[in-house]
Structures are given as structure tokens and as C-alpha cells.
Nucleic acid binder design. Sequence first.
DNA 1: TTGGAATGTCAACAAGGCTGACGTAACTTG
DNA 2: CAAGTTACGTCAGCCTTGTTGACATTCCAA
Lengths: 164, 164
Amino acid sequence: MADNTSGGESLLFLTDENLRKGIEAMFFAYRGFTSDPDRILDGLDYGRAHHRAVHFINRSPGLSVGHLLDILGVTKQSLNRVLRSLFDDGLVEARVGKTDRRERRLYLTPKGAALERNLSDAQRARMRAAYRAAGPAAVAGFRTVLEAMMDPEQRRQYQKEGDT
Amino acid sequence: MADNTSGGESLLFLTDENLRKGIEAMFFAYRGFTSDPDRILDGLDYGRAHHRAVHFINRSPGLSVGHLLDILGVTKQSLNRVLRSLFDDGLVEARVGKTDRRERRLYLTPKGAALERNLSDAQRARMRAAYRAAGPAAVAGFRTVLEAMMDPEQRRQYQKEGDT
DNA sequence: TTGGAATGTCAACAAGGCTGACGTAACTTG
DNA sequence: CAAGTTACGTCAGCCTTGTTGACATTCCAA
């Protein structure tokens, strides 16, 4: 997008020291990013893995198990353990696919949607506070850098849903 | 820092939809962020926890175990398991503190420094590519938002070392 | 001299990754 | 229609990295 090499712009923002700061910023910020939902999950019998599953099922109701596997990048055995507990507790529901009856389409139940809202409210609150403090220009840069940091495959997953 | 509420600026960047995109961007980007070192570590007998320890020992040679515990936010038992293997393999060395002889000051050995460089080179390469693609303005925004996302305690740790 | 701080260590456990192997239903193709 | 492939589930076992609890040692400081 931005072409920093034009016009003799300084490349001082690419020093190793600056990159190290960026690396540590990712580390510390990610901790903050996950801490609020983690705290909520702690009380219940769920973990971060459940949060992720519920998040993406909420984002794309009716997505298949295979697609969710692609998004999460884990093995089916690992995901299955999580999904099973979500089924058992009535948070997620699987319906047989219409066109391909081998597929299980995943949906949140009202109870699952309530948990999802609970978790994402907490996470959004922190994100909103950070966005508000940083301002719209910083937020745009934030998104740009994060996108550039993704693997191409992950970026595709990310961009699949409507970009604002 | 930035005051987005002045001058009747639009708050459209604070919609739930935008916040959701930011949340997913963090998720996908963090995966990319850790993937290169993880691949290297995979061959060896170490994991991400070892990487973190080595990173912060390199950043602040001579830091104490207690301080490292604060930074990493894990239990001493968990850290100790990691440190022990690093000692055993001759990557990290502990010297008794000069003023307070209870403290163990941690240092990388040449071998440990070599691993650190190997890992951080990989991580920096990705970071550098992302920075370069995004440009300096985006990078500034990136850092601003991440900082605002940290817990105050984490932000203090982050800012302790010289900011560029 | 005594309490508390810094550290190490043993044991046990949990979450959430992984691999490998196997089974079944359903779609697809020759 | 038969054979192969795909989508999914499941059993078993392993690893890393986190947790708690308990206890020992060493040393600083009041």
C-alpha cells in the first residue's frame, strides 16, 4: 500500500531496535487482548479454544466443521474435543448439510449466543477503549500492519467476511 | 494521545463490526507472528516458552528470576522447568547477584545468544516485511493501538526499556 | 536473632495442542 | 453399480506449558 521508499523517506522505522519494540508490543498486547475473555472462561468449564470456536460460529452461522478447521488451524481431534463439550452443554448445534449431507453445519443455540455475547462484549470493550484512545488514523495503521503480518492463507480467511 | 472526539470527527471506526475485524486481525496476525520461530523451535527440543525466556534475557542481560517472572506472567514452577533445560543445555547461565546474593542473574551463553539471534532473525524478518509494506505512519498507529491495548502493568514492563 | 524475601524443587493435575489408526456415511466418478 | 474419495467422528497416547500446594535453602534487614 504505502510506498515508503519513494521521495527519499527515512527508513529509520525499520531499525532492529524498532522491530524489537514491535515484537514486544505484540507479545504484551496479545496478553491484554485475551485476558478479559480468559477471566470469564475461567469460572466456566471452558477455555480459549471454546471461545475461538464460538466466535467463528457466531461470525458465520452454518459454517462446516471442515471450514472451521481451516480457520482455526488445528487438528480435527483437537477441535472435536471442544465441539463435543459445546454440543453436550447445548451451546452449539450441528445440522446436516442440505446439499452435501456429509457436512455438519454449525450454529449457536440461544444459550451459545449468550455466551458469545458475554465474551465478545468483554473483548470489544478493551478494543474499543484502545481504538478510542488511539484515534482513527492509528487504527487504520494498526489494521494495515496486522494484515501485512499474516500468512497469505490466513489473510484470505480474514478478508473473506465483509471488510468495512 | 490522539483526541478523536474533537472537531466533530466521525466515530464510525468504533462500530462493533470494526471492532470485530480488529479482534480477528489480532488473532490471525498473532498466528503469523509466532509461526516462524515456532517452526525453528520444532526441530530442537524447545518451545515457545523457551523463546520468550531467551528473548527477555537477551534484552536485559543480568535480570533476576523474579523480574523475569513478572515480565512473563507465569508461575515460578513453570518458568523453572524452562530455565532448567536452558541451563542444562548451556544456553543460559545464572550468576549469583552481587549486592543480593539470593538473586540469580541470568545471562545468555554464546550458544544461547546464537539461538536467540536465530529465532529473532526469523521473527524480525516478518516484522520488517510487514513494516515496510505498511509504511512508517501505519507502524506508528500500530504501536499506539497495541500500547493502548495492554494492561497498565504490562505497559510498564514494555516501556521500561528505551523507547525509540 | 528472627521474619520475610528470593529462589529451587517435588508432585500432581489440566488444557489444548499433536500423531496414528480406524470406522462410517455420503458423494463422485469410471 | 462398484470403487474411490471426502467429511466427519473417535479411541488411544503423547507433549508442552500452564496451574496449585508444600517444603527447603539461603540470605537480607530490622
